[in-house]
Each structure stands twice: as structure tokens, then as C-alpha cells.
Design a binder for these strands. Sequence first.
DNA 1: ATGGTCGGCAACCGA
Length: 271
Amino acid sequence: MSLTVSTWNINSVRLRIELVADFLQATRPDVLCLQETKCPNDAFPQKRFAALGYTHVALNGQKGWHGVAIVSRLPFEATETRSFCDKTDCRHVSVTFGAKAGLAAPLTLHDFYVPAGGDVPDPEANPKFAHKLAFLDEMRETAALHPADGARAVLVGDLNVAPLENDVWSHKQMLKVVSHTPVECQKLLAAQAAGRWVDAMRRHVPPEKKLYTWWSYRAADWAASNRGRRLDHVWVSPALGDLVSSITVTREARGWTQPSDHVPVTATIEV
DNA sequence: ATGGTCGGCAACCGA
């Protein structure tokens, strides 16, 4: 069977619930992972998702900012949230699919929202950048993010780092801009390598080609200037490396009315 | 070289 998983930094799920509904009705992924829900769990628009067929929900939200959520048409065997850097920030939720979803073997899905890191790329001067680097180090060291041989796992989310040269509009001009500094890129790639994760988006779009999932709100004309970054990612364990049959970046979502600055990324996995 | 825009929540902070 095919499993379709979408990831989208929605920048307030309550403000943009109609955009989410439109996307779900058009794309019908089995699972949608959201970041920056900016919504406490008791205020999450769960009924709206249920009406769209997404009756299974795993939440890790808080008031005002951050927050992640997984909504699914398929039931979970288990859900989990993890905290990083000894903070209460809501930046991770994971679910495991299994027999209840019709899978012969379990599959774990992690949804991440990595700290943005502020403006100054110096951990001495900027505690937010220090937090981002520590978060990436902890991702690298976390045993739960090192799938065992043969295990089926997917890691998606807004990782807030565009690690490759063609993940940004200008590698040279972005070298000192938070999200593409060498230290962040190296730490993100180290976390990826430590878990033996496969970058599924770059399996489908060669690294020579520009690929973006985010465009700043500050551009006068985001589409014309096209100064994008690939901040959102889909990683799969080696067991799934050859089983991702499609990757779709819904670029047009950036042009919808009152959009998020991120667009959805959808992966189809032959499980 | 600089400033440009959002969202939450009610001042600015975080992105």
C-alpha cells in the first residue's frame, strides 16, 4: 500500500484552518504533520479535522508560539512527545502506525520544529542561535532517532536549516545568514548521518537543482524575486530509502490568500 | 547597505 505524508509549517493553525482544509481536500494525504500551530491542545480545531476525515490526532501545542501536531486518517498504535535542551518548548511529536492502519510492520513518524535561531549567527552573542545548535546536537545524539537495521521510520518537519548549496537562492550571499551558515548545515547533516537518514527530497530532485519550501514575507514579490530556502524536510530510514515513489512541493500554496511563509511537502511511500 | 512582513497578543518578541 501507499502511505502519503505531508508536512507544513502553518504559522497558526487556527488562522489558516481554511487553507489547511482546502489542501487536505485537494491532496488527501493519509497524514499531515504541522508545525508552528501556535495553539494550546485544548484549542486545536480537532472537530474540523475530524469532519475532513482526519479523526486521529497527536498534539504537542502551547499558547502563543511553537507547537506541532499530527492529524491522520489512519489510526496510531502509539504516540509520543519528546523535549529537547531541557526546555518545555513544544517542538516534537511522533506516532507509530501498525496493524490498526493495515501495516504488516510498524512505521514510526517524527514531526519536528527546530528552533529558528534568531538573527545573529554567533552562539556567544545570541542565545537563540546557541539553542539551535544545541538542539541539532541533541537530535544527533538521540538514540530514538537512530532507526535500527530494517526499521521503518520517517522524520519530517521544519528543520530551519537549508543545508545544501541549492537549498538557497544564493549560497554565497547566505553563508552568514542564519539557516545556511556552515556550522548549522554541518550539524544538521551530522544528525542526518548519525541516524543514517535518507534525504528523500534530494533523492527525487537532484542536488544540482534549486529546491525551496519557504519564501520570506518581507519580499515585495516573493515569486518574482524567488529568494527561497529549503527549510522543510522529509527524511526516511534506509529501509524506506528506495520506497519513496513521489515528492511534491506545493509551491502555489505560497500564493494563496493570507498564506503561510512555508508550503506543504508531500511524500508517497510504498509501505 | 538597509529594511522590508507576519502572528500572537495586547508590549513587543519571535520568525
